[in-house]
């Protein structure tokens, strides 16, 4: 493993953490929008009867997204720990090799062979685990895309239901827009996470 590759891992893992944090914020906004929509639909009564079950769907989607992101955050943190360990071991390999060059002729120079071999092996194991975790994280990120896509469909349905809500039309349309925007943002952020991870895979 090269030093530059470890650096790109740090950048990728940091990017994922930042994007996931943004996804979490947006999911919380959707949850708020759902509560707001529920209150409006309640006030609108019969005029927004079709809208009421939609608000429950929106809330469920927000909850699902938050749960998934929490789960993914744990993966991202584990990836970060693996990257730190790998960086330390990579650096150790580099320095041990330097010791080998400087210790030529030293009585006990050979005693470094075992630690060097072991740290190389640990680095390989660590990197393999990193790659496995990246693959699993890519699958988890695909899971987040599902509620985001569903949210866009719900937003389209919400617009139709809102059109029959009389004086509540504008308020409910605003809710639909808000859900649609949020879903789009989540989609973009998750796409960025996947791109960052794909760069690491390509670097292999």
């Amino acid at each position: 493993m090269q030093v530059n590759q470890t650096k790109s891992q740090f950048v990728a893992v940091a990017s994922i953490a930042a994007e996931l944090s943004a996804v979490m914020e947006v999911a919380k906004e959707i949850s708020l929008a759902a509560a707001n929509a529920k209150a409006i639909a309640f006030r609108a009564g019969e005029k927004a009867k079709g809208f009421q079950p939609i608000t429950d769907f929106i809330n469920e989607l927000a909850k699902d997204t938050i749960e998934l992101v929490n789960n993914i955050n744990e993966y991202a943190f584990h990836l970060y720990r693996l990257t730190v360990n790998e960086q330390r071991m990579t650096e150790a390999c580099r320095r041990f090799e330097k010791v080998g060059q400087l210790a030529v002729g030293a009585r006990y120079a050979d005693s470094l062979a075992t630690p060097l071999q072991e740290v190389r092996l640990r680095t390989q194991i660590c990197h393999r685990e990193f790659i496995i975790q990246v693959s699993e994280l890519l699958i988890k990120l695909a899971d987040v895309m599902h509620p985001a896509r569903a949210a866009r469909v719900i937003a389209a349905n919400s617009r139709i239901e809102a059109s029959q809500a009389g004086e509540y039309l504008q308020s409910l349309q605003a809710v639909a827009e808000s859900v649609d925007n949020a879903a789009q943002i989540i989609n973009d952020k998750v796409h960025k996470c996947r791109s960052a991870l794909t760069i690491i895979n390509v670097a292999e």
Binding site: V99, A103, A106, R107, Y108, A109, S111, L112, P115
Partner: peptide
């Protein structure tokens, strides 16, 4: 460490 290896093995 290279200097130490003149006097003692790593272990």
């Amino acid at each position: 460490l290279a200097a130490v290896l003149h006097h003692a093995p790593v272990e």
